Structure formats: structure tokens, C-alpha cells
Computed example of a mutant assay.
Amino acid sequence: MTSGPGVDIPDHRGRTGLHLAGRGLERNPRVRIRDVELTSQGWHVLRRTTFDYRRRDGRWETQQRETYDRGNGAVVLPYDTDRGRVLLTRQFRYPAYVNGHPDGMLVEAAAGLLDADDPATAIRRESAEELGVRLGPLTHVLDAYMSPGSVTERLYFFAAPYTPADRLAAGGGVEEEGEDIEVLELPFTDALAMTTDGRITDGKTLLLLHWAALHGPFAPRLAPGDRPPHGG
């Protein structure tokens, strides 16, 4: 693609040069980028990239991959260990609904795109908008590519304490952006049980709740002299 919206003409979001992503990448000598095409540029961007790939046996072959670029995001699990509670959300997710979820209403940890912010700033913004809560000190848990076969997004995972005094508003998201988010304050034991009986099926939320149970604020505390499981 040599011209058009998003290339040399601003698209509806004022963007140009969207066909340049990935061109010039040389970090992996087994990959040579040949061409990048825009196949769709709605709010986010779908690209088709053609590249040469050297297989493990030394042979080169030409491959094509489509990638969906929606930017990077952040997610957080707010917890209150004194009361044994966590804050989650429930909202309608059409992709899950069309792919077999009974009603599309997913229980999730609060999350959002970084936009122009760093991950910590972004997740504090999202927590205020979605949960109506002011977070305490953030713990960076991990970073993960949630669907690396097709989606470029890297997700930054956090956990943070909160108390009833940190509730600043009702939450619910930004109505102008189509958000209609229900805030759920649940006993941690209930939330963890929901990960095993099918009531929580969102990947990022599963990761954070299991981390909280195994290594985080709700992990068993060892008494002096006790050995961790498996002799670790």
C-alpha cells in the first residue's frame, strides 16, 4: 500500500505511517520483513505482514501473518486483606458472547489501554473510572502477551491494596465510551472458587487471582522454620 488513509493521508484519528510498523526490524536474523499492508484501520489497526523466515533446518520460506494492533494495556487486582475482599468488574463482552459465552457478561479484573500513559498511571486512571477507587502502592506482578498468535498487545499486571476509605465514586466506566461496568466487591475465597467452576473465564483475571492465592496477598504464610511445599 503506497497511499491512502493511515498511510500518507490522515485517517479518521489523524494517523499516518501506519504501514511502517515492523519495517526495519533486525533483532532476529532469522526474520526479514518484506512488506506491511494495512487491511483495516478502524479504532485499532489490522496489518498483513510478509516476511522471510529461516527454519531450524536452514531453509528460508516466505510467510504472511495478520496482526491486530490495539496498543498495550494494564490490569489490576485491588485487594483488602483485612476484610478478605477483592474488587472485580462485570461487563458485556460481545466477542465472548458470539463465541459461546451464555450471556457475554464477563467477570474481570479492571483493565484498560495505556494510550499515552505509562502502565502505572494508566491503571490508576482505569481504577478510578471503572471501580471508583484510589489504589494503594502498586505491586508489579508480571507482563504477558495474551494472544501472541495474532494480537500485538502486551499486558502489564498489577495488584494493589485498597480500603473502604479509598472508595471515591461509584465507578462504572466512561459512559461516553460505551462503558457500562458493574463493580463487584467479593470475598477472595468466592472469587477464587469462581475460577474453577466456570463463572470466571477471563484469562487476565484467572492469572491475577491464582497469583494472589499462591504468591500474593492471600498466599499462606509460613511459620518460622516451616518449609515451603516440595522442599523449595
Rank of each mutant, 00 (worst) to 15 (best):
R227I: 03
S40E: 09
P187C: 04
Y53D: 14
P224G: 02
I181T: 06
G172V: 05
G171R: 05
E179N: 14
H215W: 08
E126K: 01
G100V: 01
L38R: 00
L184I: 01
H215G: 02
S150V: 01
F51R: 07
P220Q: 05
E130R: 09
V36E: 12
R55P: 10
L184W: 03
V141L: 13
R199N: 04
T139L: 09
V133E: 14
E175N: 04
G17H: 04
F92W: 08
Q63N: 11
T39E: 12
D8T: 10
F188K: 06
T195V: 05
E177G: 08
D226A: 08
D226P: 10
P78C: 01
D80V: 00
T195D: 09
G112Q: 12
R227H: 06
A109D: 09
I181V: 12
A191W: 00
D202P: 11
R124V: 01
P220M: 07
D117S: 08
G231Q: 11
T195I: 00
H210T: 11
W60V: 01
L214F: 08
Y145M: 12
G17C: 05
T195A: 09
L214H: 14
G132R: 11
P137M: 11
D82W: 00
Q41V: 04
N72D: 15
L192A: 08
E175D: 01
D57A: 07
M105E: 07
R27E: 15
P224V: 05
S127W: 01
G112E: 11
V107F: 05
F218V: 00
P228M: 07
V75M: 10
E130C: 11
D11H: 04
A21Y: 04
P29Q: 00
K204S: 13
H19G: 02
G112D: 14
V7R: 11
T139A: 05
F218G: 03
L131E: 00
L142T: 12
E126H: 06
G100F: 02
R227S: 05
R56A: 10
R13L: 15
G232H: 13
R15Y: 04
R48G: 11
P148W: 03
G104R: 07
D226G: 06
R125F: 07
G198H: 01
N99Q: 04
D69R: 09
H210W: 10
G225H: 07
P220Y: 03
D190G: 05
G71A: 00
L207M: 15
R34P: 10
Q91V: 04
P29G: 01
A128F: 13
T196A: 15
A144K: 09
E26T: 14
T139N: 06
G198Q: 04
E126W: 02
R55E: 11
D118K: 09
I33C: 13
V76H: 05
Q64W: 10
G172M: 07
G225E: 08
W211Q: 10
V107C: 05
Y162C: 09
E177Y: 09
I200Y: 06
V107I: 15
E26G: 13
R27T: 15
D197P: 09
A116H: 13
A21W: 04
R93G: 12
R93H: 15
A223N: 12
D180V: 12
V36W: 11
E130H: 10
P161R: 03
G225Q: 07
E185G: 00
D180E: 12
D197C: 06
A128H: 14
